[in-house]
Computed example of a mutant assay.
Amino acid sequence: MTRTPDIICIGSVLWDVIGRSASHMRVGSDVPGRITRLPGGVAMNIAMTLRRFGMSPALLTAIGRDAAGEELIGEAARMGMICDHVYRSEDLPTDVYMAVEGANGLVAAIADAHSLEAAGEKILRPLADGTLGSEATPFAGPVALDGNLTEELLQMIAASPLFAASDLRVAPASPGKAERLLALLGHPSATLYVNLEEAGLLCQTTFPNSDDAARALIARGAHRVLVTDGGSSASEGTAADIITQIPPAVMVTRVTGAGDTFMAAHIASEVQGLDRAAALTRALHAAATYVSGETPL
């Protein structure tokens, strides 16, 4: 029996291959460390955290029918994600993300999300064919979108009646893809989750802090924004007002996935009825716990 999701996560679901070292690294460094292979991708990272907060996310993505894809689907299902609606391609390989992290943070990363991009709007079919919704009865709930989708698909989503009743929560996959979110900047129900660098790219400038960045994004037409600035601050706001908080101070042991954890914890907190300040606090604590190497709850 197919379960009914309370949130839909649309975007990248892939294998994360992460090399981590306790050494300070630069270009050309060759140091000892650990290499892990785990389910990842923005949509997957968000869904994993949502599961820890008791939610039932459905994944809309593209996963190949290769061995890597079969293993990935199995892992996602084991963790409690609803995978019934995933687009499975016969000829596209399962995507992969590779990163290197040192004591000084993320050194380099490559996201190979070509299969997701090639699948395009095929991943959205369940929202149109009556399975999860249709133009006449669009899905009425939170939808997490990630910037690994193509700019064309994000533009289509921005204008599509399939999302007319959705609470859109949007995050760039990386600073390199931040400008893709311009298509959703003025959407009346979209909440943008960005870091300070991504906010600067969207506004074509730089900001000294998250508060200034949030105000600038609102001035550019954003309905609602959350801007993080590492361990310095985080700001959430609309045209009415902006609130800013300072994250807990922790020892950082990992970076990849921290923003996705923050976003998912914030969504779950609001779905569960927390007010704005409490939801932001809970999300910051979840992200801080994550980067410290523990499991956020």
Rank of each mutant, 00 (worst) to 15 (best):
H187P: 00
P208W: 04
G186M: 04
L182K: 14
N209L: 12
T228W: 06
H223N: 14
S210D: 01
D229H: 15
S232Y: 11
L196F: 02
A234W: 00
A234I: 03
A190Q: 06
L182P: 01
E236R: 10
F207G: 13
T228H: 05
A222M: 08
H187M: 07
G230H: 05
G237Y: 11
H223E: 12
E197N: 07
R215Y: 02
A219K: 14
L201H: 03
A178C: 11
R224T: 05
R220W: 03
T206K: 09
T205Q: 13
S235W: 12
N209E: 15
A234Q: 03
F207H: 15
G237H: 11
S233I: 03
E179I: 14
F207L: 12
G237D: 09
S232D: 14
P188Q: 11
L196P: 03
T205S: 10
R220G: 13
G231W: 06
L184F: 09
L217K: 03
A199C: 11
E198F: 07
D212F: 04
L184R: 02
E198K: 04
S235Q: 09
L192D: 07
I218H: 09
N209R: 13
P188N: 13
L196Y: 01
L184C: 10
L202H: 02
S233A: 15
T191R: 11
G237R: 10
T205F: 03
P188S: 12
A216C: 12
C203K: 09
E198I: 07
N195W: 08
E198C: 08
P208F: 08
H187C: 01
S210P: 00
N195S: 08
Q204H: 13
A199Q: 10
A216S: 15
G221K: 09
S232R: 14
A183M: 02
T205I: 06
L184Y: 08
A222N: 06
E198P: 04
L192A: 05
T206V: 13
A222V: 09
T206Y: 01
V194S: 07
L217Q: 04
L181Y: 05
A214E: 08
A214C: 14
Q204F: 02
I218T: 12
V227L: 03
R215N: 11
C203T: 08
S232P: 00
L184V: 05
S232L: 12
C203V: 06
A213N: 02
H223L: 02
A222F: 11
E179H: 09
T191H: 11
L196M: 02
T191L: 14
P208R: 15
G200F: 06
A234K: 06
A183H: 07
T228I: 10
L184P: 04
T191N: 03
G186Q: 12
P208M: 10
E179R: 15
R180D: 11
V194L: 09
L201G: 03
S233Y: 01
Q204K: 13
